[in-house]
Design a protein around this nucleic acid. Structure first.
Lengths: 312, 312
DNA sequence: TAATTTTATAGTCTAAATTTATAATAATGA
DNA sequence: TCATTATTATAAATTTAGACTATAAAATTA
């Protein structure tokens, strides 16, 4: 049994197709066929059920592939150890970011990061929290930036910052004349929400729920981006909530529409999250340092109350 | 990097000598030399400092060898998975047993176990608790039977039975006329103890200490075996304490010397202990089942108070 | 300094991994 | 249903990697 064979098995399990798996491994398909056969012969079990299309894992196969993931992860950590020894911070690093953090945070730290760590090849993807969790678990992402806490066993969290919710109250709205907003002022029924799948949406719902148990979700106007929420709000379709960093992008003439919460302001916790195996920890540390250094200048709030990003 | 190379590195780290390591790996010394060189070239670090005699690990080398142990352990677990799938319980299994458990417990379960699991090749060694702990940690033992709790991070415990302490009171001893003994009756100064390194000795000391803080260890008669303790006691050199199972071996005419404790009787907890990685768990389960099944017929005590086996 | 122990290197052999080419098989679509 | 396509398996050839024997080099010990 070799590490190479295990990597092949992982690739086949992932793509459910010898040919595609072979491409990803940069070898030919017969190589995979013979190597997997050797592995199966040596262990004297069938790992892949080639009868089914697409290929399926057998019961043992699933367990073996799970364990193969562990072994390959542990093996990759050897390179981590060497990098750490040499003070080398580099290599490919796949980072996921949730949509409501991406447009505001990324421009703030990216330039800075690639200047400081030019050898790191960052591959950044915008993904929902759910997608992020599966991809960190299966090893397709090295880390991600998401709202926390997530209560996920396989994943560790390291807080980057707390981002208060800010109300966006259009002209003629019932809350227009209030200088600061309280959570009890909120009414889910005149709140513009992001569409399903965004954890910021869940955060807002949790916040409103904290004062109103029953939520009638018959009609709500929903949108895919915070930009659109602001426009809809300007059309008089209701108020909305924004993450603080987004308010820095609001056009100056719309600034009068913003209302901060009375302290302790509701806020979301934004963290860098990663697999519990702590692979590539040097790069995760580097990201953490750069981002929390930058954010220190942008967010000064102390007294906040964290709202869970999880749907209830 | 191959699993084989990592195994070679582990062997060299253990024996601090290429030649001996090669023998243990059943290959020639040049094989190790070249494979380790390849590994070092690939990682571009030096793992072994051949300058020192005996060979030493470099700083990175230590970390790499530690991680290699993890990888090799995880790799061996693949075979475990396969065995589990096939219901196969077999292969070599190295079991350590502490001296005060060995002579009484082993004869009780060994025949039974090898009849039930003939494919398991048990290699049993009598070892002190301390030796057991290091050997489980470094992978030289698969499991052991010892007095617990041990409070060791790397090691898991599964209780087999509770074995009460029984007093052995010779003729003309001050406690001779008592039908049941109490802990407060004990005096460390007329107690015959096993020599240093036995955890049963530490158990007895802890028990006596529970009523007497200061222990004057100026003169105590000590011995390497419980058989000898009994003989010394018969010579009028003091009383002693025996683990319950040993009292079943005491000759009939000496039975009148035995005194049980008033309930709750002090007792030691005897467990099967193993590495937290839970390798070969099927065999550990099998041992646990056989032993606790057998012991159920021999020890019926319920109301006991566990005495720590650790030196304080 | 000679003898011994230990590691490294050179050359050779063998087995293993990979490739190309092609066959076999299953799925898809006219 | 039958050709077309996609996919996996097999065969033969090639390359690479692992292991061995023999021996050199270096360090240690007597």
């Amino acid at each position: 049994m070799t590490i190479t064979q295990l990597k092949y098995a992982l690739s086949i399990a992932e793509h459910k197709n010898f040919t595609k798996a072979a491409e990803k491994c940069f070898v030919t398909q017969p190589t995979l066929s013979t190597q997997i056969q050797k592995l199966e012969d040596e262990l004297d079990v069938v790992i892949f059920d080639r009868g089914k299309k697409p290929i399926e894992l057998t019961e043992v196969g699933r367990k073996i592939v799970f364990q193969a993931r562990n072994i390959v992860n542990e093996a990759e950590r050897i390179q981590d150890i060497v990098d750490q020894q040499k003070g080398f911070i580099g290599g490919e690093f796949r980072l996921g970011i949730i949509p409501t953090v991406m447009p505001t945070l990324l421009p703030m730290f990216l330039q800075n990061f690639i200047k400081k760590y030019p050898k790191v090849k960052l591959k950044i993807e915008e993904l929902t929290t759910e997608e992020i969790l599966t991809r960190i678990s299966d090893g397709h992402l090295d880390a991600a930036i998401a709202a926390t806490p997530l209560e996920s066993d396989n994943i560790k969290e390291r807080v980057l910052y707390y981002e208060p919710f800010v109300a966006y109250v259009p002209n003629n709205h019932r809350l227009r004349d209030k200088k600061t907003i309280e959570v009890s002022d909120l009414d889910i029924d005149d709140m513009l929400l992001l569409e399903d799948g965004h954890c910021f949406r869940d955060g807002v719902i949790n916040l409103c729920k904290s004062f109103k148990d029953q939520i009638d979700d018959s009609f709500q106007l929903e949108s895919g981006s915070i930009e659109t929420l602001i426009k809809l709000s300007n059309e008089g379709l209701g108020m909305t909530l924004l993450p603080y960093l987004h308010t820095l992008d609001v056009k100056e003439k719309l600034n009068p529409n913003l209302r901060h919460f009375k302290e302790p302001s509701p806020a979301r916790e934004v963290s860098i999250i990663y697999h519990k195996s702590e692979l590539k920890m040097q790069i995760i540390d580097a990201l953490h340092n750069v981002i929390s250094g930058i954010i220190r200048g942008a967010i000064a709030f102390q007294n906040v109350e964290i709202i869970s990003p999880l749907p209830k």
